[in-house]
Amino acid sequence: MKVFGIKKVNDIYSEIVYGKPKPIDEVTLQDMQKNPIWIFALDEEEEAEGIDETWQKPILYSDNVIHELLEAYILLKSVDGQYDISANLDIKEETLDDVNYWNTEQECWLPIENVENYKELQFVAIPKIEGDADIIFGFDDTKNVFCSIRSRQEITVKKRNLLSSLNSLFRKG
């Protein structure tokens, strides 16, 4: 177990504790259920032989993805309960890439594109995202990516506010 150390996060000091790294293709559903947040173990490459850029390590004792992580693989569940999902979360954009579902027969992660009508699925994040629980992700055809429903709503509100501002400028003139 590796301790990252004391880190200041939003004026709160916290300790991030990492678990043992393993190759990304060996991270199982059970691993992610135990620790729903995984990051690349890039800092481990120099310390241990055989570890390369494809290895990941879990964040222990935490169920909250913080902004400072930038990207993390997280566990999600389809809203209909049918699929367990692993995806790389871009926390700034609140988008998912490298989206995979757990195939129980083959006991491995497979690309979500193998699921018929995958663009109609919605997923709920198992860990919190910046302290917010139950963040839902859906497919955004305009961006061709899964993104959080709240980020789409925020963009819509921003566009609406911008259009309102522009309209009021033209009406005054």
Rank of each mutant, 00 (worst) to 15 (best):
M1N: 13
I12N: 11
I12L: 13
Y13G: 00
S14H: 03
I16Y: 06
Y18E: 00
P21L: 07
K22S: 01
K22L: 08
E26L: 10
T28Q: 04
L29Y: 05
F40G: 07
F40N: 12
E44Y: 10
E46M: 12
E47N: 11
E47R: 08
I51K: 07
Q56V: 14
H67W: 15
L69N: 09
L70W: 04
L70Q: 13
I74K: 06
L76H: 02
D80P: 06
Q82T: 06
D84R: 03
K92S: 09
K92V: 06
T95C: 14
L96Y: 07
D97W: 02
Y101C: 01
W102V: 02
T104N: 12
W109M: 05
V115S: 02
E116W: 01
L121F: 13
Q122E: 15
K128G: 03
E130W: 07
G131N: 11
A133K: 15
I135F: 05
G138E: 15
D140Y: 14
V145P: 06
S148C: 02
S148K: 00
S148R: 02
I149H: 08
S151M: 07
R152N: 10
K158A: 14
K158F: 13
K158L: 12
L163G: 00
L163A: 03
S164H: 09
S165H: 06
F170Y: 14
R171G: 04
